[in-house]
């Protein structure tokens, strides 16, 4: 009867729920650590200079991924050359020009929709539209065009966020001293939003590096080095992820883990870079 209200009552249900919360957080982190440690452990043996600097050769029985690295770079560069201006343009229209209304709602809905479409559907669409209808076949250009649509929402959304964070006073200031709208966007708004835009581009690079299903039927799986700088974009080219899948399907696990480790290092680097840029943005 003399229970003090100061005595701390421990509720068993609280402890159980708290335990579940801690367990869940532990599982999430453990999965990440597990993947990184396991891939590093199994993959580090495969990585040597030959692995990184040569092309696989059935004749010599050697394996290397330089061709795939070059293809990945090609696809990143071409995709971004096309997607970045379109994405920025779209974001500028949505934040600086458009008035809230039906058209903006439609554009935003379709952008959201693009973000939700799985990469295998992009692969199918790219194959029939860019590959068959536009006669690009299996080529790096076909893959890049497919990925352009895929990363567009990422670039649009991050650019929009960056543009919205530019203070309204910059706009009224620029317009007040007589700048035209485009002049204001070109000299004030876009430079102020640049860190945010670059973050979006870096995130897109991450998506491109990790993409596989959308590239399998569009960019193909070739692994040779380019014969000429420009015409290479009309030839098939498999990225690192495609090569990883092919090695995995052939049960060549040592090399598969080698590629997986290279991919993880790239992804870690990209994440760190994006974090750094975002930090810079918030400082401004």
């Amino acid at each position: 009867m003399t229970e003090s209200i100061y005595a701390k009552k421990i509720r068993p249900s609280d402890m159980i729920l708290l335990g579940l919360v801690l367990l869940s957080a532990f599982i999430s982190v453990a999965i990440l650590v597990g993947i990184i440690v396991y891939v590093a452990f199994r993959g580090v043996g495969a990585i040597n200079w030959q692995f990184l600097s040569t092309v696989q050769s059935a004749l010599n029985g050697t394996f290397g991924i330089i061709g795939n690295i070059v293809n990945t770079l090609y696809i990143i560069v071409i995709t971004l050359i096309i997607a970045t201006p379109i994405g920025i343009g779209s974001a500028v229209y949505l934040t600086e020009y458009a008035k809230r209304g039906r058209i903006v709602r439609i554009i935003e809905f379709t952008t959201e929709t693009l973000a939700g479409i799985p990469s295998i559907i992009y692969g199918l669409f790219g194959m029939v539209f860019f590959g068959t209808s536009l006669k690009l076949g299996f080529s790096i250009l076909c893959g890049s065009l497919t990925l352009t649509i895929m990363v567009l929402p990422t670039i649009i959304r991050t650019t929009q966020e960056a543009l919205k964070s530019v203070p309204e006073s910059y706009r009224s200031g620029a317009l007040g001293i007589g700048a035209t709208k485009w002049y204001m966007i070109r000299t004030i708004i876009l430079p102020s939003a640049m860190p945010g835009i670059i973050t979006g581009v870096i995130l897109s690079i991450g998506r491109i590096v990790g993409e596989s299903a959308a590239l399998l039927f569009t960019a193909g799986s070739a692994y040779l080095l380019p014969k000429s700088l420009f015409s290479h974009i009309f030839t098939p080219g498999g990225t690192l992820t495609i090569q990883l899948y092919l090695s995995m399907a052939k049960a060549d696990y040592t090399n598969a883990f080698g590629i997986a480790l290279v991919l993880l290092i790239i992804v870690l680097g990209i994440n760190a870079l994006a974090k750094f840029m975002a930090g810079k943005l918030s400082k401004n």
């Binding site: 596989s212 992820t241 990883l244 598969a256 997986a260 992804v267």
Partner: peptide, 8 residues
Amino acid sequence: IPSVVYGL
């Protein structure tokens, strides 16, 4: 992390 790595 790329989905093929999850597959592996």
